[in-house]
């Protein structure tokens, strides 16, 4: 059973992702609403995968990812971006994100990316 941490400031998005993951047999070990919570949760739980929103209050996803990777360079982090955030996505990939999904997304797109990241 694989474990995922979902990070997004929108409840709607978290629920959507939770449904997709649970539907595919994953366990959502925690949700975080911003970068700070994400870093804390990751340190505490060390899940197999993180889906990370980019723009969030308090601490954004890229900063959060950098902090996580500092302590856990093997962390598998997938960015969730909105349309038009290409620059930020590229910055994230350059900083160590393994892949990304663009909102709005379809279930299968998410699962494709997840499968690839986990097999890599």
């Amino acid at each position: 059973m694989k474990q995922v941490l979902i990070v997004d400031d929108a409840l709607f998005m978290r629920n959507l992702l939770r449904d997709i993951f649970e539907g595919a047999g994953w366990t959502v070990v925690a949700e975080a609403e911003d970068g700070f919570q994400a870093v804390e949760q990751f340190q505490a739980l060390q899940p197999d995968l993180v889906t990370m929103d980019i723009v969030m209050p308090r601490m954004g996803g890229i900063d959060a990812m950098r902090r996580i990777l500092q302590d856990f360079p093997e962390a598998r982090i997938v960015m969730c971006s909105a349309l038009g955030q290409e620059r930020m996505v590229m910055e994230a990939i350059n900083a160590g994100a393994m892949d990304f999904i663009v909102k709005p997304f379809q279930d299968q797109q998410v699962l494709d990316v997840v499968a690839r990241v986990c097999n890599a």
Binding site: L83, E86, V89, M90, I93, N94, D99, F100, V102, A120
Partner: peptide, 17 residues
């Protein structure tokens, strides 16, 4: 593909492996 730039970057990273 909606974000070709980032997508190519991911692919490039993958190929680099």
């Amino acid at each position: 593909v909606v974000a070709p730039g980032p997508r190519l970057l991911v692919l490039l990273n993958r190929v680099a492996e």
